[in-house]
Amino acid sequence: MHEETELLQQAKSGSHAAFRVLYDGHVVSLFRFLKQFSSDRDEVQDWVQRAFIKAYEKLESFDGRSRFSSWLFRIGINEMKMDRRREMTIPMVSSENDEEAVMQSTDDFHWKEVMGTWLYELETIKRMVFMLYEVEGYSHAEIAAMLNIGESTSRSILSRTKRWLRDKWHTEETSI
């Protein structure tokens, strides 16, 4: 973390070498995440490139209060959103009581490999929240900032997605 702060300082001073180290450290995670939303590798490469170029140009505005990776993901997702505006609609959110009920009902959620393919049946925003939280390990606050939604919306979307996956799993299992 200290090393990353040092690299960011150097990159802010115009060091391409320092920015290259940051690129090497984050390009794989950003690429593989964005790859889940396009089968076209060229398109993904374009989003990644644009994200890093914008990150470099806006480095001065990065105050270090959030993680560099979450800031970079936010830029990357915004680049994707520019091309996929229609797919990024946010679903209606339930009330807090409903959300609590949903969360309780997904406590017994367990990930199964087959669920990876089922995720593609979901809306982009739901898939994003699920992957950012469950796979990439970002907090709801970070996800809310990345996707420009409320924290409670992020929680609710995650709970609903987990419940949907769990229910689908039970349905599949009983049908066999």
Binding site: G14, H16, F19, R20, Y23, D24, V27, V28, F31, R32, K35, Q36, R41, Q45, V48, Q49, F52, I53, Y56, E57, W111, E113, G116, M131, V135
Partner: peptide, 26 residues
């Protein structure tokens, strides 16, 4: 468990993307 090998950028892709990024930055 989530990502496949195919989801990762190859070494050549990483190099190519960096070249384009370098061209794009000041």
């Amino acid at each position: 468990d989530m990502y496949h090998d195919d989801d990762q950028p190859t070494r050549a892709e990483r190099k190519m993307m960096w070249r384009n990024i370098e061209k794009g930055i000041a």
